[in-house]
């Protein structure tokens, strides 16, 4: 089964192109426009990783990170930003992100980061009792 990713970006073209690119790499991608939509989807569905833009109207990327990290502490969270500085990176990492990538997105980098994050999640799952993970039934490891 394909790893299911949640991608949040307010720009429709970015959503489309990222979805297409990730699908081409064998992922199942759900795209939403806002942080609030993302929280709503996370509450209903199980995802392997979340990829979010930082600069968004409404709930900011950082706020989304905090909430996701609070409610789903084992869910890998990747952040994309157009303004990569040590400051923003540190802030995003503090908010719970496991990776911060700059735009424009280099597909190789994104894939590397995703692979790393998903591998970490698999290791964590092996060693962590199921109850420690959120109240959602996690999917079995998708990649073969």
């Amino acid at each position: 089964m394909q790893p299911k990713l949640l991608f949040i970006d307010d720009d429709i073209d970015t959503r489309d192109v990222v979805r297409e690119s990730l699908i081409a790499q064998g992922f199942h991608v759900v795209c939403v426009q806002t942080g609030a939509e993302a929280i709503a989807r996370l509450e209903r569905e199980e995802f392997e990783a979340v990829i979010s833009d930082l600069n968004m109207p409404g709930m900011s990327g950082l706020e989304l990170c905090r909430r996701v990290h609070r409610n789903w502490p084992n869910l890998p969270l990747l952040v994309l930003t157009g303004f990569l500085s040590t400051g923003t990176s540190v802030e995003a990492l503090r908010a719970g992100a496991c990776e911060v990538l700059s735009k424009p997105i280099r597909m190789q980098e994104l894939l590397l980061a995703l692979t790393r994050a998903l591998a970490g999640r698999r290791v964590e799952r092996k060693h962590t009792p199921r109850r420690a993970t959120p109240a959602h039934e996690p999917n079995p490891s998708p990649r073969s």
């Binding site: 970006d9 720009d11 073209d13 970015t14 192109v17 990222v18 297409e20 690119s21 157009g82 735009k103 424009p104 997105i105 597909m107």
Partner: peptide
């Protein structure tokens, strides 16, 4: 963001 779209 637009540049990102172009490149991807």
């Amino acid at each position: 963001s637009p540049l990102n779209v172009v490149l991807m």
